[in-house]
């Protein structure tokens, strides 16, 4: 390692604040770029699941309606 101690690595002769804040901001943004699409995918899947359930219950209601209807 170029630095003698962890403390020196953190301070970087006074430049640590610039280097480490750059690092922190980049890390937060990049983690966000991975988390966001994963959440979007989950939301999309839930949405589709809900639609399928809704369709199934509608169909079931229709069928019972037909079954209950008096035969003429």
């Amino acid at each position: 390692m170029y630095f003698d101690s962890l403390q020196q690595l953190m301070s970087m002769n006074g430049h640590g604040i610039y280097v480490w804040s750059s690092f922190a901001i980049s890390a937060v943004v990049m983690i966000g770029l991975i988390v966001k699409p994963l959440r979007q995918k989950q939301a999309a899947m839930k949405n589709i699941e809900l639609q399928i359930k809704l369709q199934a219950s509608k169909q079931a209601a229709k069928q019972t309606e037909v079954a209950d209807a008096p035969h003429s």
Partner: peptide, 20 residues
Amino acid sequence: LAFAPPDAKQGNSFRIIYLH
């Protein structure tokens, strides 16, 4: 950030290059 040598003119702030 930890192993590369610092820049002769800019010192350690040059390490931002590795993200920028």
